[in-house]
Design a protein around this nucleic acid. Structure first.
Ligand SMILES: NC(=O)c1ccc[n+]([C@@H]2O[C@H](COP(=O)([O-])OP(=O)(O)OC[C@H]3O[C@@H](n4cnc5c(N)ncnc54)[C@H](O)[C@@H]3O)[C@@H](O)[C@H]2O)c1
Ligand SMILES: NC(=O)c1ccc[n+]([C@@H]2O[C@H](COP(=O)([O-])OP(=O)(O)OC[C@H]3O[C@@H](n4cnc5c(N)ncnc54)[C@H](O)[C@@H]3O)[C@@H](O)[C@H]2O)c1
Lengths: 230, 230
DNA sequence: GGCCGTTTGTGATTGCGCTCACAAGCGCCT
DNA sequence: AGGCGCTTGTGAGCGCAATCACAAACGGCC
């Protein structure tokens, strides 16, 4: 267990713990048990303990975890002791909302550039910044030491945006366009896809209404035809 | 295998297949192999076949899957043969971007209401709609048969927004606020958390630069102090 | 009509992550 | 100083998901 390699699932939960812990300091709490942190983060307490144990033995038996110290350790592990420079590619509806969002800066992510391909947008101010030309991406990335690229272009342009980010040396990409991007193995890619989230909700919603209908004693033609299928 | 109950992981991938398939019809393709669909969706072909087999035996050996027919079957399974009415709670930066987004309507999700608590926003037009009063949420949900609630309020107000959605009868919630929401068991909850995504990227980015530094033959003080810890 | 190349559908296997359960360790109180 | 209650850290077991691997099935061609 003392080995390196934190499981992916744990990495995905650390930011959640971190947020809960920050809330707790703001409410003046000094220590927190795995049980308490689990409740705040909406997970199981054994999971919390196992996750935290990957970082080291930072708890005290019979007492819990020191909130401040744990914040520091998680921040360090996540690489949040430094600021990261980001570029938003595509300044449409979504890109603008992201640019205006204060939450990123608070968490150590600085939006250092906004780029777009649309002539009518280039040069215009957006939230104390100015939209720059997509053509200058490589120079901008190098000059400002940008390490994270946020793709908020149309779906059709997203692969191009990603390719340009990659050749500029960006190794981490967050994609909002509803398309599957291809990137080299050494580039981390994460996606946020709102339509997919809604479709997943739709699946369970449908299942619920179907169940409701069955409970009322009605036969569903859909399920009936399905059961007759060999 | 003929049993009901589609694995969660499969449900999450079905929308991805669906999107690839729609792209394919637009390019005039009639049939597609699991291999081809796998490539388009960025997954392994065995996974595609197993996922699709949960819906039934809709493929033809030696040929592949009929694109149109598969689109229909996946849509039906996901509950996309009907439209779903949604309400956006909180019309700030993000809420406005979501309201203006055309992609939802195309996929059968109709934004039927925008509500906010801010007096100065209520009554104002946003994308051919008018912002309504959060206080009227229950009536609006009932009248327009809204089944999906999208929470885009500030973090502090998100739990209240969710509670009100739940008591209005909404059973599916998509949360954008960076906070853990509590909802009853029979309510589906999904979250989109951009800061968490960035923090995950940060973790791997840091690991990469650490590795890079080690490769260059330098000793990392961080890893050195870690290895001396008992 | 039979053979051949192709692709599906699915048992079998492996691996990962979640949960349980409890010994070990800590602080506090007497 | 010793006992007690509380909480951590982690081995063990379990279940779900990913991957492998191949028999079964199909279309087309000779
Ligand atoms: N708006 C939303 O709420 C929302 C929700 C879910 C998904 N999305 C997705 O996010 C993406 C952006 O959405 P949006 O509503 O902001 O769209 P938008 O059309 O308003 O903005 C897209 C922007 O990208 C720019 N662009 C196009 N090609 C480019 C290129 N090659 N390089 C740089 N910039 C380029 C355009 O000029 C435009 O400014 C889309 O892919 C959309 O599907 C948006
Ligand atoms: N803007 C972004 O790009 C972005 C990115 C990531 C996360 N988020 C999160 O999304 C949420 C919204 O972000 P934003 O930038 O739009 O913030 P915002 O402050 O611009 O908008 C919040 C809106 O919610 C409304 N509101 C507050 N309490 C309400 C209540 N009880 N009922 C109804 N409406 C209420 C406010 O009046 C305001 O209009 C925040 O929680 C934010 O952390 C936003």
């Amino acid at each position: 267990m003392r080995e390196r390699a934190i499981p992916e699932a744990t990495v995905a939960r650390l930011p959640l713990y971190l947020r809960s812990l920050v809330d707790m300091t703001e409410r003046g709490m000094q220590t927190i048990s795995s049980e308490g942190l689990a409740e705040a983060a909406g997970v199981n307490s054994a999971k919390v303990r196992k996750d935290l144990s990957y970082l080291g033995s930072y708890g005290t038996r019979g007492v819990g975890y020191d909130v401040e110290y744990l914040i520091y350790q998680i921040s360090r592990e996540l690489g949040l002791t430094q600021d990261w420079n980001c570029v938003i590619v595509g300044v449409g509806n979504l890109g603008r909302a992201l640019a205006n969002y204060r939450g990123f800066g608070e968490r150590g992510f600085r939006v250092s550039a906004l780029v777009d391909i649309d002539e009518t947008k280039i040069g215009k101010p957006v939230d104390s910044m100015v939209v720059e030309d997509f053509a200058d991406l490589e120079r901008i990335v190098k000059e400002r030491e940008i390490s994270i690229g946020i793709v908020a272009t149309t779906a059709a342009a997203a692969q191009d945006a990603a390719d340009r980010l990659v050749s500029a040396g960006v190794k981490s990409i967050l994609n909002f366009a509803p398309t599957v991007l291809q990137v080299p193995d050494d580039v981390s890619l994460r996606k946020v896809d709102l339509s997919i989230e809604l479709q997943i909700l739709s699946f369970y919603e449908q299942r619920k209404s179907a169940l409701e209908t069955v409970r009322r004693g009605k036969r569903l033609t859909a399920s009936a035809s399905k059961s007759t299928r060999p």
